[in-house]
């Protein structure tokens, strides 16, 4: 590991200025991903600005009924917070499905959003990777593709964003509150991360030195019955192969009035399944309609030879999660192992 200076930040704007002024500086929050990358040599900052002592560790109600989760709120605290559990249980589920108890106690809301891909080639200095070393090539194109993208990838990068939390936030229309040295602005979480295009080294639209200070969730009545489902290689402590967050509101006549669907493990960013959402509006909310919504989204899928298996997983994640949400909305208990057909 390269030597580095360690600073404890005193205020958000000052921390942002300190990092903005030094291209080799980085913010340190929980460190669960950054410290690991430093050990691997993937990231080699000469200065760490520790932001964990800044007053960004509260969960607060917003005047219009939403919720503001400070960037330093630990993943375990956010998942357990009573207002998150009752108003946005899909966010608790997503958080609890990620990492381990120890890691969730350290990892923060802001850090979770800004964690980097676990693509094996990105994390291995001995292999080419355009994200780690622009222009060096993408080893995954002819390599291990199990955890790689099926939506929105480019010839330069097929990595996926590993966060579960961000998938729920994208479905919930959450916004990231961002502080730079001079001002504060808001960016929808669904537009915070980029598709790789020709610049896979850039994960997000943030500039160097931009500090996420909070995430804001809008009031969303249907979020109370939204659900998260994660498909992975082990029952616990594994990244998603595919995951889905879904919310749905039914009209008086039982048709779908509104829907939110986001997918994880399938793209360089949490993937809002807008084609599936559009296909659902006005539909009768049957298993057939959920399958049709999944097909609408899958029309855009471009799997790699090593991850075509993800397409049926996307279909299953969308239909099963929507079925569970529909049962909840209709007031029927949704058993964890119910089928995905007509109900």
């Amino acid at each position: 590991m390269n030597p580095f200076d360690y600073h404890r930040a005193e205020d958000a704007a000052g921390a942002a200025a300190l990092v903005a002024d030094n291209p080799a500086a980085a913010f340190l929050a929980g460190g669960t991903n950054l410290v690991d990358r430093m050990k691997l040599g993937v990231t080699a900052p000469d200065t760490l600005v520790d932001i964990t002592h800044l007053p960004m560790d509260e969960v607060e109600e917003l005047p219009e009924g939403g919720l503001r989760i400070g960037a330093n709120v630990r993943n375990s605290e956010a998942a357990a917070h009573p207002l998150v559990r009752t108003r946005y249980p899909v966010l608790s589920q997503a958080l609890l499905s990620g990492a381990s108890g120890q890691l969730r106690n350290a990892a923060t809301t802001g850090g979770n959003l800004l964690q980097r891909t676990r693509c094996v080639y990105f994390q291995d200095l001995s292999t080419p990777c355009n994200k780690r070393e622009p222009g060096s090539g993408c080893s995954a194109l002819e390599g291990y593709q199990r955890y790689h993208a099926v939506f929105g990838a480019s010839p330069d990068c097929v990595a996926t964003h590993p966060s579960d939390m961000a998938v729920a936030l994208a479905a919930l229309d959450a916004q990231a509150v961002v502080q730079d040295a001079a001002a504060e602005r808001r960016i929808p979480v669904s537009r915070l991360h980029r598709l790789p295009g020709e610049a896979p080294e850039r994960d997000t639209v943030l500039a160097h030195g931009d500090l996420i200070t909070a995430v804001e969730l809008p009031a969303m009545p249907m979020a109370a019955r939204a659900r998260y489902r994660k498909i992975r290689d082990r029952a616990s402590f594994a990244f998603a192969l595919v995951s889905a967050a879904a919310a749905m509101e039914l009209a008086e006549d039982g048709t779908v009035a509104d829907a939110r669907i986001a997918l994880g493990g399938v793209a360089h960013k949490p993937w809002r399944a807008r084609l599936a959402e559009e296909a659902l509006i006005g539909a009768a909310a049957t298993g057939h309609d959920f399958a049709a919504a999944a097909e609408a989204e899958l029309a855009e899928a471009r799997p790699l030879p090593g991850n075509t298996f993800k397409l049926p997983l996307v279909r299953a994640a969308i239909t099963t999660t929507l079925g569970e949400v529909a049962d909840g909305v209709r007031g029927r208990g949704a058993g964890p192992d119910q089928g995905e057909g007509e109900r």
Binding site: Q102, N105, A106
Partner: peptide, 8 residues
Amino acid sequence: RVVSCLIL
């Protein structure tokens, strides 16, 4: 509880 290997 935390993993002390990832805490500076």
